[in-house]
């Protein structure tokens, strides 16, 4: 089994099975460009630095990729905007502990940076789900967002939104 080492922004090393990394468009491109697949060169032993991903987040990303090993990888640049996507139970349980917190958001940003389309889609959908049927104040409370509005401003937005009710 070929292992490739990923290095997080806080310099933690994560040896990862080569096969898993095919889910990440960013890492796959790096591997190809740096000839890391060529076992006859010194490059094969080179670690891949990921300066935009912290260790605890990278650990979660790897955990997710391990579970989804062998899943078909999405091709192309088009983001799936389908509102009907259902987050599978395993992924829901995976996201839940970090939901409403910085960690889930950082995981989403990492999925975008690493170009892991399935993770990005599910992660964004999980965030969307937390907004569904909620009012602005409820969203603020759940996600810990400070209230910047005056009561008059909130009332103005509420009135502007009435047409859609």
């Amino acid at each position: 089994m070929v292992l490739i080492t990923l290095v997080s922004s806080d310099e933690q090393n994560f040896p990862v099975e080569r096969e898993l990394l095919k889910q990440s468009g960013t890492i796959e491109t790096l591997i190809v460009n740096m000839n890391l697949d060529d076992e006859d060169t010194d490059a094969a032993a080179m670690p891949i630095p990921l300066p935009n991903v912290k260790g605890d987040v990278l650990e979660k990303v790897i955990q997710w990729m391990e579970h989804h090993k062998g899943d078909p990888v999405k091709e192309g640049d088009n983001e799936d905007n389908n509102a009907e996507i259902v987050v599978p139970q395993w992924d829901d349980d995976f996201f839940k502990p970090a939901m409403y917190g910085s960690k889930h958001l950082e995981l989403t940003v990492a999925a975008s940076y690493l170009d892991i389309k399935n993770l990005l889609t599910l992660s964004c959908k999980a965030i969307s789900n937390t907004f569904k049927g909620k009012t602005g104040p409820q969203i603020r409370e759940e996600w810990g967002v400070p209230n910047e509005f005056t009561p008059e401003e909130e009332e103005a937005i509420r009135k502007e939104n009435e047409w859609s009710e």
């Binding site: 983001e79 905007n81 969307s128 909620k134 104040p137 939104n161």
Partner: peptide, 23 residues
């Protein structure tokens, strides 16, 4: 670009509700 993905997955009424969450 990520906020856009999140919002596109919401019905219009929920998108409008987000307006009163923050400026």
């Amino acid at each position: 670009e990520l906020l856009r993905i999140v919002i596109k997955k919401l019905p219009l009424a929920d998108q409008l509700n987000l307006r009163s969450a923050s400026r």
